[in-house]
């Protein structure tokens, strides 16, 4: 465009705008990685610490409940004379129908809840991740077969399925049996998520690049695709830990979970329903313990998800 307008020329003083080397690596910065970055982000949030402290306390209680109480949850420590007595000194949560200390029972009940939750989560995540990764990576008929199989399990409500299975297990009901049962019905969710993550990360350029470098298909899956698909699975695992603990309580409440002589929150909640009008504290305390435990894991899952997702980090 023709213009008679004079355009002023401005050149910045060179000392004010020093020119750095083209594209030099900033060696002053500390090396970092995806996981380290995520941890750095988590470290700065108070919610992380609340969850972690709660979880550590819960785990310690589950491992050595005797540290926090001198009594036994059943048998010798129970005194039928104190049946349904309100809280008193040394017995902050009162007594149940059998005259056992509710506080002690909650401490001892932590173990079975946590064992069921952890074992079920580990199993479901392992099964789901392996199946989901294979289905997503190899595709084709294998994917169809595996995905339909997952759908079948997915269509059966976990609790309903567990009720049927727990009724027929020949070797008797215990925490491990229950955990396996829950995992059998819980893996499809993990598999779906893993499959989706694998589907997207197997398209990544770095996978094509390493194929062209001569890396075999299986090795590519293990070294590049799976590690890049783990983040959503870790998130779903922390969330399912909470839901499995709830499922244990539900099944025990329905009388098909852990056997009645086991000390567990579900069993206690189940027992409490008969005396709910007389002693609501019997229902309240185990339910509260359950809620706090589940909430700690769910919130931790939330924090981990945010930390692994840069977009969520920016939103805060």
């Amino acid at each position: 465009m023709p213009s008679n307008r004079h355009i002023e020329r401005y050149v910045a003083p060179i000392e004010e705008t020093p020119v750095a080397a083209v594209d030099a690596v900033d060696e002053t910065q500390k090396a970092s990685s995806v996981w380290l970055d995520a941890w750095k982000d988590m470290r700065g949030r108070w919610l992380t610490w609340v969850c972690l402290v709660l979880i550590v306390v819960i785990v310690v209680v589950a491992l050595v409940p005797g540290l926090f109480t001198g009594m036994n949850p059943a048998g010798s420590s129970c005194n039928l004379g104190k049946s349904l007595d309100p809280p008193s000194a040394g017995h902050p949560f009162g007594f149940n129908k059998q005259g056992c200390d509710v506080y002690t029972r909650i401490l001892y009940g932590t173990r079975s809840s946590l064992i069921v939750g952890l074992v079920a989560t580990v199993l479901a995540t392992l099964i789901g991740a392996v199946i989901g990764a294979i289905a997503g990576y190899y595709g084709g008929w294998l994917d169809s077969v595996v995905s339909r199989l997952g759908d079948i399990f997915f269509a059966i409500p976990t609790v309903l399925g567990a009720i049927v299975v727990m009724q027929v297990v020949p070797w008797g009901r215990n925490a491990i049996t229950l955990a396996i049962t829950l995992a059998v019905f819980g893996w499809p969710q993990v598999a779906r998520i893993m499959r989706g993550a694998v589907l997207s990360s197997k398209q990544a350029d770095f996978v094509t690049a390493s194929t062209a470098l001569g890396v075999s298909r299986g090795r590519n899956l293990l070294r590049h695709v799976v590690p890049n698909s783990l983040a959503p699975v870790i998130v779903i695992a922390t969330v399912s830990l909470g839901t499995f603990i709830v499922a244990e309580a539900t099944l025990s409440f329905l009388g098909v979970g852990l056997p009645p002589e086991t000390v567990s929150w579900g069993v206690d909640i189940s027992d409490a329903q008969a005396v709910i009008r007389v002693a609501p504290n019997l229902l309240f305390y185990p339910a509260a313990a359950l809620a706090v435990t589940v909430l700690s894991f769910l919130l931790l899952g939330d924090v981990v998800r945010d930390a692994l997702d840069p977009k969520a980090r920016a939103r805060r």
Binding site: D205, F206, A209, P227, N228
Partner: peptide
């Protein structure tokens, strides 16, 4: 941005 595996050094 896609050619290197973000999880590997």
């Amino acid at each position: 941005y896609g050619t290197l595996d973000p999880m590997r050094s």
